[in-house]
């Protein structure tokens, strides 16, 4: 296993990365079309949000009631998907420890453009009650682009549904461009991530 140079800000292909399974290309921006078809796609994106059901922190306990009869998010066209490839919405539910950040980055990068992120709970905004913890990050949008924050500790499922509404509004207005933002400022995001993750044992970009 070769050492990965964290100081230099460029894509490095470690020896243990099978070239058939990992990609060394940088993410590319895919510009929006400026026409009615794009508006139609935006509408479909907003009304068919598939969320990656990956609970990163304690906030995920508030996501479970969303699927049940009491809150039933399926009536808004929102459905949980177990694989990042198929999801277009990533809910970071609560505090992000250094260990989880690694998984969040890998999952986020596997999602396809366009993709959206909701930061759930105060911990994603400023660290919340863990702001001075030795192993949690404080501000999520230094590491991945965030579309909507839902503040609270813990926010109720109703607050999360309000967050979904806000996200839908953003997508329909054509402002849900987190994936392109990530590709555009890739070097900055990667540098921030590497400042936190010391044992960087994965490709720099996981698609």
């Amino acid at each position: 296993m070769t050492e990965v140079n964290n100081e230099e800000n460029k894509i490095i292909k470690p020896d243990y990365c099978d070239p058939e399974l990992f990609c060394t290309a940088l993410p590319k921006e895919v510009p929006r079309m400026n026409n009615i078809i794009q508006k139609f796609y935006d509408w479909a994106q907003a009304n068919s949000l598939w969320l990656l059901a990956f609970g990163t922190g304690c906030g995920s306990i508030e996501m479970r009631p969303l699927y049940t009869a009491r809150y039933d998010i399926s009536r808004y066209g929102i459905a949980p998907r177990p694989t990042p490839r198929q999801s277009n919405l990533f809910i970071i539910s609560g505090y992000v420890s250094v260990k989880t950040l690694k998984r969040i980055i890998r999952s986020y990068e596997q999602m396809q453009n366009p993709k959206f992120v909701i930061g759930l709970g105060s911990c994603t905004i400023n660290g919340g009650m863990y702001w001075d913890s030795y192993n949690t990050i404080n501000r999520l949008d230094h590491y991945i682009p965030v579309d909507v924050y839902v503040a609270g500790c813990m926010p109720r499922p109703e607050a999360l549904i309000a967050g979904f509404d806000e996200l839908k509004k953003r997508i329909k207005e054509g402002r849900g461009e987190g994936a392109n933002e990530y590709a555009k400022n890739f070097a900055w995001y990667k540098a921030n991530q590497k400042k936190i993750i010391k044992d960087w044992d994965m490709p720099d970009y996981n698609w």
């Binding site: 990609c23 479909a44 009304n47 068919s48 396809q112 698609w207």
Partner: peptide
Amino acid sequence: VNLVKVMGVRTAISH
């Protein structure tokens, strides 16, 4: 809506 959504995804990875 789901079909239009997945057809409108801008990137795809082939293996």
